[in-house]
């Protein structure tokens, strides 16, 4: 690395350069090309130039671009996931609303049924009450009628009995009894 034939070669190199290819170091024997210090300045310079340009090119042009692509994709995937999540929530909400409506409808139907049932029952009850009331009234009327007829009849019976008794007494006894006596007698018998 320090003292190599290659270093000496540098001095006679210009002469050989005219032959446009320099392949002498290998032939000369001894010099191992990677340790040939005469090539170091050139290698370092060109490495610095090429690697420097490469670094700048990557930093300014390539990496922002690839980073941008990856970021856009990441954002897009995230966005799609968000949207999918939102749609799922909407679907869930729709299902919940549907269930709610179904439950409401069921409750309502029950309520209507109950109402109808209650109404029917109430009207039936009312009708029954009415009928019963009219029947009671009729029964009352009839009983009153009977009572009055009976009373009338009883009264008639009393009169008839008095008349009959008066007549019988008149026939048997002959004489005429006053009416009040007969009535008192009949009353006493009764």
């Amino acid at each position: 690395m320090f003292v190599t034939p290659g270093y000496a070669q540098e001095h006679n190199a210009p002469a050989l350069d005219e032959a446009h290819t320099v392949e002498d170091a290998g032939h000369g024997g001894g010099s191992f090309p990677p340790f040939d210090a005469s090539t170091f300045p050139s290698q370092i310079l060109w490495l610095a130039i090429t690697f420097g340009l490469f670094y700048l090119f990557l930093k300014k042009a390539v990496l922002p671009r690839i980073g941008g692509i990856l970021e856009v994709r990441h954002d897009r995937i995230q966005q799609d996931l968000d949207q999918a999540g939102r749609l799922k929530e909407e679907a869930d909400a729709a299902v919940a609303a549907y269930e709610q409506e179904l439950a409401d409808a069921r409750t309502k139907a029950n309520a209507i049924g109950q109402e109808a049932r209650d109404g029917a029952k109430a009207s039936a009850e009312a009708a029954r009450k009415k009928v019963e009331a009219s029947l009671d009234k009729k029964l009352g009327d009839a009983e009153a009628h009977i009572t009055s007829i009976k009373a009338a009849a009883m009264k008639e019976v009393g009169t008839i009995a008095e008349d009959t008794a008066g007549a019988i007494v008149q026939e048997l006894v002959g004489g005429k009894l006053d009416k009040a006596t007969v009535a008192a007698a009949v009353k006493a018998v009764r």
Binding site: A25, F32, P41, S42, L45, W46, T50
Partner: peptide, 25 residues
């Protein structure tokens, strides 16, 4: 070893140092 040989394509020399454009460059 021949494959590691450096050959000058465009000889450049600045201040006594060899900065030639070689096959390595």
């Amino acid at each position: 070893i021949h494959q590691f040989q450096i050959s000058k394509w465009v000889p450049i020399e600045i201040g006594g140092l060899d900065f030639s454009f070689t096959n390595a460059s």
